[in-house]
């Protein structure tokens, strides 16, 4: 059983109708360690794709390739072809800082800035000059907070510190912050792992709403969550994508034994 991963045929990659992001033969090395091996995935526009897989299989690593967050790790080396809307995001002339404005990110642990709630949301738009005056900024902040389903809860305390919110509220604040710059893609790395079921349900609801306007990629350890929120799923194992396809099909009828083992909870 141990050698199962090595024996398998290459994962099946179906063609996606309108791919927003296409990855082809992406490899990532942390120094000597080969963390992502020949991963090819298409991520559809305006939808949710989830990455599942056992711990340490490279989900976060691959996610962080999409907004070039891995550039901040000196020993990390990314090769292969990664495109958003057909444009190579690793081409030399591209500024990763501008890319990150288009590809937002929500992290596993809520990480609001230790500033006011308002400032948390306003920071991104201010950075990119999205609002030309205070009124516009107020509108934008309210919009983002509303989209994140947080506005009603915090509208009277926008001046309070973002860190004074509860964990779930903080995570929604982070989502509001991410969408405030109106990115095209939102990457979420286990956004609910620090939250209770009610807060998780809220976030899932939110993801479902956001999918109309954003392309969302979510890493999760919860099969149920993946099944609930995503339309497509990729199963990672030891740095490879073993199986990738429509979520229902992956969960109902996995083609690969590793996938079946994983989603039935027999290992991982």
């Amino acid at each position: 059983m141990q050698n199962l991963a090595l024996e398998t045929v290459a994962p099946v990659v179906e063609s996606v109708p309108v791919p927003k992001i296409t990855a082809k033969d992406v490899n990532v090395h942390y120094g000597e360690k080969h963390a992502i091996k020949d991963v090819s995935v298409d991520i559809p526009a305006k939808g949710v794709m989830s990455f599942i897989g056992p711990s340490g299989c490279g989900k976060s690593t691959f996610l962080r390739c999409i907004n070039r967050m891995n550039d901040t790790i000196p020993i990390c080396r990314v090769t292969g072809d990664l495109r958003i809307d057909g444009r190579d995001i690793y081409e030399p002339g591209l500024d990763p800082v501008l890319l990150r404005a288009r590809v937002g990110m929500v992290f596993q642990k809520p990480n609001p800035f230790p500033k006011s709630i308002y400032e948390n949301v306003a920071y991104g738009p201010r950075l990119h000059g999205l609002a030309s005056n205070k009124v516009e900024m107020d509108e934008l902040v309210e919009w983002a907070l509303r989209r994140a389903g947080l506005f009603e809860e915090v509208k009277d305390r926008l001046k309070d510190s973002g860190t004074s919110l509860s964990g779930g509220q903080q995570q929604r604040l982070c989502i509001a912050r991410a969408i405030s710059v109106r990115p095209e893609v939102i990457l979420m790395d286990e956004p609910c792992s620090a939250l209770d079921p009610i807060a998780t349900a809220k976030i899932e609801e939110l993801i479902d709403e956001l999918r109309a306007n954003f392309t969302i990629v979510i890493v999760t350890h919860s099969m149920q969550q993946a099944a609930r929120v995503s339309q497509r799923t990729a199963f990672f194992h030891l740095g490879k994508v073993i199986e990738e396809g429509v979520t229902d099909q992956i969960f109902m009828n996995p083609r690969h034994e590793l996938t079946r083992n994983y989603i039935t909870g027999r290992f991982g």
Binding site: M69, T72, N111
Partner: peptide, 12 residues
């Protein structure tokens, strides 16, 4: 994580 949050928003 604070720095990552800022970087993730498109701050240099």
């Amino acid at each position: 994580s604070i720095k990552e949050a800022a970087l993730g928003l498109g701050a240099s």
